[in-house]
Design a protein around this nucleic acid. Structure first.
Lengths: 128, 128, 128, 128
DNA sequence: GTGGTCTAGACCACG
DNA sequence: GTGGTCTAGACCACC
């Protein structure tokens, strides 16, 4: 998968990398059980420091998206489960997003259509 | 409207404040044309620095949510319009959110139901 | 409070530091609401790197022992609560410890006496 | 006895294995004088490297939990005795555990009750 | 081979 | 002032 980072962005690199990997999993480019590049390899590919990659991997591990095996490195978790914290985060993020959209003139129908469109962009690579 | 900030959160205070105000507008607690507290008043009420409030107001202005009149202070914009930048931000934020949800096992139906539910929580206070 | 680290130990410095701080709180040397040294100060005092201290503080924050305020730095949490994860960790650690003690010939009475003695060593500095 | 290891845990495999064996002895599943599987057999059963098992056995030997006879392999020590090092380790581990528990709101009574409960879970399999 | 830890020092974001 | 991020490069622990 292709990683594109913007080092001049105000979003920390480790967050950008985290998001890109989550998107990769969401799009099905990274399948459950599939290995991620080693910390060193990813650092080299992305042109960043190993500690930055390490931090990203630790976060993804904490969030349950990946597991890290001492022997073979990191791989996408096989069984993902939505925990309560994540559910709350999802709802509050979505609430903010919908408030912004609504203020900017989108009604419910528009928003749901947008959701459909975004989902369609995710779908072709995997079965949901 | 009530502002609740968590100074020991990792989310910067000015972002929390910005989000709370956007939510307030989205919920109809702050109506178009309605005045916001002065920078000093808001700072006093929320127990934060005036610079922080000032930063928040500038951001809200840049995003088009409020207008700032030298004489009468800040007020909620009367005509909000979705510009291209905002549309892109919305779509990319939504994509990430849906990717996370999908990886954690939510399917499209679940997500759309969640959207309906969140919208219902926003609606009673205003007409969309 | 006095921090003593053993850089030649196999226990990572950030873990040693974490343990010392938890002990300090447990002994009442650090009271709820009391400030911890800044990251830089602690690093200087302990003769270690700021990032190492930062890591320790992040862990203590995650574990709920301290809170980090953007404005004034880190301080001991005022309301500590035992969550489920911690309860499980406590029980499994204790199980291992008691198994070891039992194999080495301690019976229940001996162990409970040891507990009393250790608690007495913690107590004089605070009210439990 | 059943050994369950988590290769994606942050706890080294040799430590996990060591703990499981100590627990097995503590619970009476492994009795004094009883043989442990050979290094190769254990490695095969647990799906890990022989070097890892070997390291675990050496540690258990150093700690006095097992003895290793060149001819008959490893077996649980017949006479366990608490040496000074172990006593110190036990006390310092227990101190940390009690500090954590105390900070999280457990008082002495709660802790002693927990000890009783944990001991009861160990007891049925052996005479203490 | 893998990830984990640590350092020294720089720079940025926040309030 | 505070903490947060990032780097380059070293060394260690684990398997």
């Amino acid at each position: 998968m292709i990683i594109s980072l913007d080092t001049s962005s105000s979003i920390p690199i480790y967050v950008q990398l985290r998001n890109q990997i989550v998107l990769g999993i969401g799009r099905g480019e990274l399948k459950p059980g599939e290995s991620l590049p080693t910390v060193r390899q990813m650092a080299k590919d992305a042109g960043i420091n190993t500690m930055t990659v390490n931090k990203t991997y630790q976060i993804l591990k904490t969030e349950g998206f990946i597991e890290i095996d001492r022997r073979s490195g990191a791989f996408v978790s096989k069984s993902q489960r939505m925990d309560k914290d994540f559910e709350e985060k999802l709802e509050s993020d979505l609430t903010l997003l919908m408030a912004e959209a609504s203020v900017k003139g989108m009604d419910k129908e528009d928003f749901l259509k947008l959701c459909e469109r975004v989902f369609a962009g995710l779908e072709p690579c995997q079965e949901l």
